[in-house]
């Protein structure tokens, strides 16, 4: 399900599937884009890949690999925080 990840020196990161990296260039006159938006229930969620740690291995997880199963996706502020 999840492909083997590589534990190199670079800090790996994932991202959304099927989306070009947005250009970071902005003209001075442009307001910063308001991108904070909540998802809508009943709609498909955005697919993504993300590096992961799972049972003593580094892997790369793709959400769409879990189609056919129920998924609980939890975000939290940070490792070693208390709650």
């Amino acid at each position: 399900m999840a492909e083997q990840g590589h534990a190199g020196c670079a800090r790996p990161t994932g991202g959304l599937v099927g989306e070009e990296n947005e250009s970071t260039e902005q003209t001075a006159s442009q307001e910063p884009k308001e991108t904070r938006k909540m998802l809508m229930v009943g709609q498909k969620v955005p697919d993504f890949t993300a590096p992961a740690y799972h049972k003593n291995e580094f892997t790369n997880v793709k959400l769409s690999d879990y189609l056919g199963k129920w998924v609980v996706l939890c975000f939290y502020p940070g490792d070693f925080t208390f709650v």
Partner: peptide
């Protein structure tokens, strides 16, 4: 990813405590 799901707080630089239930069709 947190930004796409609406839970990333750019001021604090962390994700808020979001929990999403996704069905077998990938629907929230």
């Amino acid at each position: 990813v947190g930004s796409a799901y609406g839970v990333y707080d750019p001021d604090a630089g962390v994700e808020t405590r979001g929990r999403f239930l996704i069905d077998p069709d990938g629907v929230l």
